[in-house]
Each structure stands twice: as structure tokens, then as C-alpha cells.
Design a protein around this nucleic acid. Sequence first.
RNA 1: GGAGGGGUGGCCGAGCGGCUGAAGGCAGCUGCCUGCUAAGCAGUUGUAGUGUAAAAGCUACCUAGGGUUCGAAUCCCUACCCCUCCGCCA
Length: 425
Amino acid sequence: MLDLKFIRQNPDLVKEAVKNKQESADIDNLLEMDSRWRSYLTEADALKQERNATGKLIADLKKKGEDASEVLSGMKAVSDRISALDQELRAIESDINNDLLTIPNIPHHDVPVGTRDEDNKLIRKWGEKPQFDYKPRTHWELAEILDIIDLPRGSAISGSGFPVLKGAGALLQRSLINFMLDFHITKHGYKELRVPYLVTRETMTGTGQLPKLEADMYMTTDDLFLIPTAEVPVTNLHKKEILAGSELPLNYVAYTPCFRREAGSYGKDTRGIIRIHQFDKVELVKICRPECSYDELEVLLSQAEAIAQALELHYRVRMLCTADLSFASAMTYDIEIYCAGVDSYLEVSSCSNFEDFQARRANIRFKATPDSKPSFPHTLNGSGLALPRLVIAIMENYQLRDGRIKVPGVLKDYMHGMEYINPLK
RNA sequence: GGAGGGGUGGCCGAGCGGCUGAAGGCAGCUGCCUGCUAAGCAGUUGUAGUGUAAAAGCUACCUAGGGUUCGAAUCCCUACCCCUCCGCCA
């Protein structure tokens, strides 16, 4: 969330950001509540001061054995007024806080303002589109030939959007997870975490999924939510902590399944395993000093790109325009890998800088030096990479005319030396 | 699931309902002193809100939320978390 003081001082800037992100929030109402809150607080604090002073007086009188009943009766009225004010303050505070949680982060000034897909800014392309002398098959066609992804049976078990991976498909998925984890750990120096897949409402609020996206989340009857991304448990790892400046930057990598209801999304991108309710992802998270966060974003992006490069997959990088930015993000790069079967670029990673937006929500702080005041670090995260679409990319781009799929070189060892995924005979 | 025990500052650990933001110890920081090391002496060391040009000041915070009371770390209720034992279980 944003700093209330900041909103107070820059209301127009905040309104502009809300508009550019196509969100809605009543800033004027918030500021009105804020000023009301402060005036009540002033009164309550003054009364409390009086109560404290009188309390000492009463204690003195009683010690001397004198009658304090007169002072006592006067204090009853003060005390009642204090409770009334405190109650009012709590109510306003809670309203303010609820409002603050619905105000999106402010886009970085380098982010293109826009609402259309064309407003997303192409940063670069890497590699070349693979060439085929026949019409390349889609991954769902290949899946059936190879019997490595079973959509009907998955649907029978859990409904649509829950594919079952079989045989070499399951192995490919597992190999990719291991490959990416190893890669980020050994080449980029990340620390691996294994984290809970069910988290509390508070945790979901810390990273900004709640309250806005509650309808997209799976909730259990215990008021726990299935994580939509490892970002949630990993970024919240240090919630309510004060970190030492010397610990930063923190670099975490975690593999988790991700659960998304995808409520309201239908039509395009729903064929095959492009958009599913449960998918695997390797996620990178950084917590760093504010002055480093935009450099770290570039690093993060390049580390995610390194996976696509190691797998020799053609991709493009785009900077998202304001309307496409997520609620919590100040700047986001998408990595989109070209997939020959569906003939389009599929998003496999979003690398975002949230600045101090999540840190403030989750109350993650750090001390720049041992004796400086705590302040908020910046948090970043990026997929490194998202699995089902990476599987799609490999299947569709590494396919051969006879239906076989060549195993990318870096995965061969992980795949027990397998060179091709072969069709059923 | 059943039965108990517990949650106080960076840590350990006191705390008759008012004089306790909180004794004492450890750790940290600052001076002084001692030729090193160690010790000793004195002082200091939380977070947040409000306020201010900046301060001062004021207020709140002893897991969290309610309650009793003129007044609560201290009494009552609830939730959460941790520990021990029994049961169950990968």
C-alpha cells in the first residue's frame, strides 16, 4: 500500500496513477477521513494526558489516606469521552486501512501510459522463430499423439483446467523444475525455499492479492487460501520483521504449484494447457535496498531470460503499459516465448518491481545501518519460469514431423539421457 | 482428537491494579581508565502515531482482540501461536 502521508501530500499524483491503472479509489473521501481521524486523535490524546496526570494524583491521595471520591467522579466523564473517541478512532482507522488496501501502486514514470496491447513496449527479441516445412502441431495435438498430457482424465478427476501429465510428460515437467532450480541456485546464487501452499488471509493481503482478487483465489473452509504463486509465501517470509541492512539483498527461489480460479477468463488461451487452474512455477524473489531495486529488476529479468536462452527458445521482452500492470507493481517486464503450434507469444514470466508497496503491506522493514531508523525495502519477483507454457514451448518448437519431440540439450541428463519423446506405437 | 503448561524489550528474566516503557542480567553503543588481551567505572540503547522548519512535547504498544475499573503488563473472556503427555497417522 501507499503511505498515507504520501497520499496526503500528493493527492493528484495518486489519482492519476489510479486512473492510468484503470482502478477506482475515492482519494478525496480517504483524505477527509484522515483529517477527521487526526482531529479526534488530538482530542483523545489530550484527555489521556489528563487521565494519566489525575491517576497519579489519585494514587497520592489514597496513599495519604485522603478522600479521592471527588476527583474520581470527575474522571468518569473524561474516561467515557475517551472510550467514545477511541471507538470512533478505531472505526475510522479501519475504514482508512480498508481504503488504503484498495489503492494500487503508482507506476514508475518510465512505464508507458496506455490500455491496449500495442501500448506494451517491445524491449527486445532473442533468437529466431523455429522454421518448419509443415504446419507445426499444437501441443494438445502432440499431447494426444505422445500420450503425455491427459486432459479428459484430468477433467474427470477435478473438472476442466486440471491436466494430468503422464510418462515422459511428467518427467519433462519434473526435469524442468529441477533444471531451473539448479540453474538459479548455482549460477545466480539464489537460496531455495520450500514453502507452504496454504496461507492465511493476512499473508495474501501482504503481497496484494487480497482484497482485490479474492474471487480468483481458492479458499478453504479453514480460511486459508491456496497460493496463486510462490511470491505470496516467499515475499511474506519476512513479514513484520526488521532486517539488517547487511542481509540485503535477499534472493530466494522456490518451486511451488500455483492455484488460480481464473474466474471470468474464458475464450482465448483456454485450449490445451495454456491457462489452467493448477500449474507449476519456479519463482524468483528479491528483497533489496530501495536504491538498488531498478538495477535488481534488470538482473532478475536477465536471470529469467537465461532459462529461455539455455533452452534455446525464441522470445521477446515487453514492458507492460500502465493498464496491464498488476495492482501492486510499479514496473513489469513480461517474457513471452514464441510457440510454433499456436503461433503466438505466450507469457512465461512477469518480472516486477513492487518498490515498497508490498513491504509496507507486509510490514517488512530493514535498517540501512545498525543505528538507522527502520525503513521499507523494495520487493521484486519474477517467474523463472512458469511451467505449463514452457512445456508448450518445448513441445511445439522442438517437435519433428513424425510427432517426436527432441529433448533440449540441457535437459537430457535430467531426462535420464532421453533424446526424444516418442509417440505411442 | 483428549489432557495439561506457557507467550514480557535484541536475548535471558522480574513484575502487590496506580510511582513500570517496564527491575536485574547478557549483548550493543558512547565516554573515562588500564602499555596489549581481559577487567573496571559512568552514561546510553525499542517501535509507532501525532506534532514541528527541525526539535521539544504528548499518546499508544508487555502475542492479538474484547471486557471490568477513575486507572490494567498485572483481574476476566475469546482467538492465535509455542511446549509436554496420550491417541491417530505419511
